[in-house]
């Protein structure tokens, strides 16, 4: 199995990671090896097997609708990279929606 540079770039883009041109071969190979490992299992028939998302508990407990969290903005923003007027600041967003 081989993974193209374009595939690696597509996935990196989704994950917001930059892959330098010099790294593309390595990342493509890493990805291919993990997929190859898995592709060996192709012969195992899993049709009709219910996917397992959670190993132990069966269903969700529900929380009563009460306000339990107090918000200490100063404490929560202590390590924030950039704050102005209580807002997190990022470079200007060109609104897509």
């Amino acid at each position: 199995m081989s993974i193209s540079h374009a595939e690696v770039e597509r996935v990196a883009r989704l994950a917001r990671l930059r892959i330098d041109p010099g790294e593309l071969d390595d990342r493509a190979r890493d990805l291919a090896r993990i997929l190859e490992l898995f592709d060996r299992l192709a012969a195992i028939d899993t049709r009709g097997v219910e996917p397992l998302s959670h190993p132990v508990a069966e269903s969700q407990r529900l929380r009563p609708d009460t306000v339990t969290e107090s918000v200490d903005r100063a404490a929560l923003q202590q390590g924030a990279p950039e704050i102005e007027d209580g807002m997190y600041v990022v470079p200007r967003v060109i609104e897509p929606r």
């Binding site: 595939e7 690696v8 597509r10 996935v11 990196a12 989704l14 994950a15 990671l17 990342r27 890493d30 990805l31 993990i34 997929l35 898995f38 299992l41 195992i44 899993t46 097997v49 219910e50 996917p51 397992l52 998302s53 190993p55």
Partner: peptide, 23 residues
């Protein structure tokens, strides 16, 4: 990267979905 690939369009069933069944 590997995890994003496994969940991405066109690959979910073959990778993530299948892995959940194997689990």
């Amino acid at each position: 990267l590997a995890g994003t690939y496994a969940l991405s369009k066109g690959y979910y069933d073959a990778y993530y979905g299948k892995a959940q069944r194997l689990r």
